[in-house]
Design a protein around this nucleic acid. Structure first.
Lengths: 218, 218
DNA sequence: TCGTCGCATTGATCTGGATCAATTTCGTCG
DNA sequence: CGACGAAATTGATCCAGATCAATGCGACGA
């Protein structure tokens, strides 16, 4: 198995062995559901390949995408009785599943690991605060640009630095992440492309004017 | 000292004694700053009395309030080099301060405490996801109603259940929390009062029609 | 090759909440 | 009490982004 990214990077060999013994490697087809908001939380997942859409629904169908999980990300950490959001695969996804029991046992036995998970959670919280700023106070163009730069940085931290940002999710997913409509996302992309700020390519976007984009993101 | 709420509830007496020996009781006057976004993170705080406004600023002055801390809440947990947001007192505030060194030592020494802090952080993350749903997908009226019900529940969990929700923060603070303008907040309050859904009283709001409010919050 | 089904784009119009602009209310201090 | 300043309310108007409504455009199977 590929060495788990992020959380396991600082573990000793015996801790890593223990972790791997408890992990169930799992695979999900495109569009398949990892878990559903409100259902009993049976497992925690560590994504090893692919992208996962995390979202909440309102009873009338309005959707808010709360994040996109990339390889290395942990899902379902809240670990109360029920999952707080739904998760499904965008394209093919591989993940390591830990049963709730295995997870809590592991956490109790290895404070070291708990510390890493806590760091991961506080980092997530920081990102959530930035997303609040974005949702509450930024314009459509700023939202799009911050999203593109954010995705580019995340891929870069995973060892895939590139001026071409892969966007495997649909325009609707992006709209629901940024609190916009699909039409506004599409129009804003078109406008940025006319500006020569970006170039729209199949499956993603090429960053053409990073200076201007960074300036807008401030 | 009053027994610290939430995090310390499940600690043994010796752990509690250790915690108290490291805590610096601190007091802040109305409007005083606990810490500022971007500054070096020297302390973690546990609020013991009063309400704290947590917010992020954009370079052009746009503000997003990311939360209001009530007694029992922990601030500055992210504990990277710099604070991720600013915090200042709404009215008089008392808090226990822990130096960064004391905090990390404590966390390393007491996995039990770390587990509690981690639970606290994951709960915060769940609230942050709900706030994203609110900011991205709800109308002004829904935002206001969810905010009022949320504050009511939080006071209730602290042992102050009441149909009158105290609102020590300004309309501007509420607007910046909900991603609205002060005028929209004011108008929406007025409309809800005309509906007899709420009654505006000095320093807060009285919930008159909880059924309708819960229905809107869905 | 063609038809069809999901996206995505583009255009026309509408509207919820923002912005601009006065008041009004309230808390505080001389 | 009366005057001042900060916060809140209310009204008039505007506009960014939503909504409504066609197309466009691959990918895929027959």
């Amino acid at each position: 198995m590929v060495r788990l990214v992020s959380v396991c990077a600082s573990l000793s060999d015996d801790e890593l062995a223990l972790l791997e013994s408890l992990a169930h490697p799992t695979h999900f087809a495109s569009g398949e559901t990892l878990f559903t908001q409100g259902r009993e939380a049976h497992s925690v997942y560590n994504v090893t390949a692919g992208v996962v859409r995390l979202y909440k629904l309102l009873s009338d169908g309005r959707r808010q995408v709360v994040g996109f999980a990339l390889p290395g990300d942990f899902l379902g950490l809240a670990m109360r009785d029920a999952y707080g959001f739904s998760a499904d695969a965008i394209g093919e996804v591989s993940a390591c599943a830990f049963s709730r029991g295995a997870y809590t046992a592991l956490v109790d036995a290895k404070p070291h690991l708990l510390k890493r998970l806590h760091e991961f959670a506080t980092h997530e919280l920081t990102l959530a605060h930035e997303q609040m700023m974005l949702l509450g106070r930024r314009t459509a163009e700023e939202k799009l640009i911050c999203f593109l730069l954010g995705m580019q940085q995340r891929w870069a931290r995973l060892g895939k630095p590139s001026v071409t940002v892969p966007l495997p999710m649909t325009r609707q997913d992006i709209a629901d992440f940024l609190g916009l409509t699909i039409e506004t996302v599409s129009r804003t992309f078109t406008r940025l492309a006319k500006d020569k700020t970006i170039l729209i390519v199949p499956g993603g976007v090429r960053v053409m004017n990073p200076e201007r984009m960074s300036a807008v993101a401030a």
